[in-house]
Amino acid sequence: MGRIFRAATLAFFVLLAPSLADDDRRVVLDRATSQDLLETGKILLVGAKDDEQRGRALRLMELAAAAGLATAANELGRFYLAGGGGIAADAGKARAYLDQAIAAGNSYSGIVLGQVLIRGEGLPQDVPAGIALLDAQIPGGNVAAAAGELGRLYLTGGGGIAADAAKARAYLDQAIAAGNSYSGIVLGQALLRGEGLPQDVPAAVAALAAQIPDGNVAAAASELGRFYLTGGGGIAADAGKARAYLDQAIAGGNGYSGVVLGQALIRGEGLPQDVPAGIRALKSQIPDGNVAAAAGELGRFYLAGGGRVAADAGKARAYLD
């Protein structure tokens, strides 16, 4: 709290107070620490109302980076990847500041730079360089993020690098062991679908189920619910499990599971038909933004009706529109 207060005070007196003379501004800046300059720049950047204020904010952050503060170089590198607030993205500055941060010991910048090089987001794509950067972060303890990114890359390959199932599995297992639960979702999906890895449905079910106690309820339960509607890979469909997992996913905020549940109940596919419940499930998704899929399903249903609910041309047209 003290650091934030100092930064906010500095932002006001050095940059905003019109009565402060230039010499006085320099005195205050000279007494500020590089961390103060960074925090002040961040505060001002968020609240900047014009290009002049944004420029002042970035200059303060640049002063902090020039003083050797790795976190300042990291902030500037990430900012220039996308730009913002009227300041254009700048790939050259982004790369220079991220390299500076890495050289100063900011390993998170190595993750950021590796990711953007692999994805070609904000910098020209250079997958081999991205892989090398991410691999370099693992011995330093940044296993979860680096191994997770590498595991996802090797599932499909890209940028001149071939897919490699063995590397994908090894990196994903490493990321999961380091606490990257999203990698457990990725691994479960790949094993369930046989995409990037040999299909192994029992292992996939186990991987997805293991993520639910860790808080990844929405994605894991949704995937399991949809799987149990039809079964596959030697595991039979199970309406009870399908309904339980879909309800769990919906409660966890996965709106798509509400659409899936509504469709299954209306059509009687994978679950006993219950048209009124299916309609309610679909309607409940529309206020949450799942308009296209939910309204489309309801519109098609009302064209013909079914399950003791009559066709309704007015509702059909309204939902389809």
Rank of each mutant, 00 (worst) to 15 (best):
G114S: 09
L150H: 05
G148L: 03
A132W: 00
L150S: 06
A136M: 06
Q125P: 02
Q137F: 03
Q115Y: 14
A136R: 13
A145W: 08
G141N: 13
P124D: 13
G141Y: 11
Q115W: 12
L133G: 00
A145P: 07
A132E: 05
L150R: 05
P128Y: 06
I118D: 12
A129N: 10
A144F: 01
G141M: 14
L133M: 02
G122K: 09
N142A: 11
A147C: 08
A132T: 10
Q125D: 00
G120A: 11
G120H: 11
Q125L: 01
E149A: 15
A144Q: 03
G148N: 13
Q125T: 02
L150T: 07
G141C: 09
L155Q: 04
L155R: 03
V116H: 11
P139W: 09
A132N: 06
D126N: 02
R152C: 08
G122P: 06
G130S: 04
Q137E: 15
L123N: 07
A144N: 06
E149T: 15
A136V: 07
D135T: 11
P124Q: 10
A129K: 14
G148F: 05
G140E: 12
L134S: 06
D135E: 15
A147F: 09
L133T: 00
A136W: 06
G148Y: 07
I118R: 15
A146W: 05
A129G: 12
G148W: 05
D126R: 00
P128R: 05
P139G: 10
A146G: 08
L133D: 01
I131W: 05
V143G: 09
I118V: 15
I118G: 13
L155P: 02
L150W: 10
A144T: 03
A147V: 12
I118K: 14
G114H: 03
L150M: 11
E121K: 15
P124C: 07
Y154R: 03
G114M: 06
I131K: 09
P124W: 03
D135K: 12
I131G: 07
L133P: 00
L133K: 00
Q125I: 01
A147G: 12
E121P: 07
L123D: 04
I118Y: 13
G148D: 12
Q115A: 15
L117P: 03
E121N: 15
E149C: 09
L117K: 05
L155D: 03
E121I: 15
L117I: 12
Y154F: 09
I138S: 04
Q125F: 03
V143L: 11
P128E: 05
G114F: 04
L153D: 01
V127R: 01
P139Y: 11
I138W: 07
L133N: 01
G122L: 13
L150C: 10
A132G: 03
N142D: 11
L150K: 10
A132L: 02
A136P: 08
G122W: 08
I138H: 04
G141T: 12
A146M: 12
R152K: 15
A147Q: 08
